[in-house]
């Protein structure tokens, strides 16, 4: 959808046109869902965030600044919602009880559980994405999955373009290495079983 068509849809939806709002949702819900799903790895969370982000955007369409892309606005709101949801889901530990335990090892994301969850629910790509830092993951997804430009990502994340590129290279390198190791391990297992 080009920008002028998108702007007309936004104007109509802001005026209360349901069909225009439907077209806007249909145009962006897939990419937004994919982005949040890859960011969070949780389908339910992604679905809720997509819904919440669209509701917020449609309720405040009159505030939309046409100088920017609609998707940028939508993704920014969705990302904030994701961060909020992530913050709420973060496990809290009583430090006095836990004492010197390794919180990482005892958390629900402990390697054993995580491995099981990942094996069952996530693909190899998701596992590699999860291993990245938040910035690296976001840059990788926006650049390679959403096809945003380096400059657009830099503006969106409020960081220099050089930093965006650095995150991109390191993230890609790390993902490639992890996927390669995973592949080697799978090949080894297959060889042993055969």
């Amino acid at each position: 959808m080009n920008r002028s068509a998108e702007r007309k849809l936004i104007e109509k939806a802001a005026a209360g046109d349901k069909s225009a709002a439907t077209k806007l949702i249909k145009a962006h819900q897939g990419s937004l869902y994919a982005y949040i799903l890859r960011m969070s790895g949780k389908p339910e969370m992604a679905e809720d965030i997509v819904q919440d982000a669209f509701v917020r955007v449609l309720m405040h369409l009159d505030r939309f600044d046409p100088r920017f892309r609609f998707s940028t606005w939508l993704f920014t709101i969705a990302k904030r919602l994701y961060l909020n949801a992530n913050q709420k889901l973060k496990p809290h530990y009583d430090t006095e009880i836990v004492g010197g335990w390794d919180a990482e090892a005892q958390s629900p994301s402990a390697p054993a559980i995580r491995a099981e969850v990942e094996t069952n629910a996530r693909g190899c790509i998701q596992k590699a994405l999860d291993s990245l830092s938040d910035e690296q993951r976001e840059v990788i997804l926006l650049f390679h999955q959403q096809n945003w430009s380096i400059s657009a990502i830099a503006r969106h994340l409020d960081m220099p373009e050089g930093t965006v590129k650095s995150h991109l290279h390191r993230g890609r390198q790390r993902m490639r290495r992890l996927i390669s190791e995973d592949q080697q391990q799978s090949d080894l297992v297959a060889e042993v079983w055969s």
Partner: peptide, 23 residues
């Protein structure tokens, strides 16, 4: 790796729920 990353994901259609809530 990037092809896998870009592979389309079967996204659920939440448009009805969104339109209902906004309505």
């Amino acid at each position: 790796m990037l092809d896998d990353l870009r592979a389309p994901i079967d996204a659920p259609d939440v448009s009805c729920r969104i339109l209902g809530e906004v309505g």
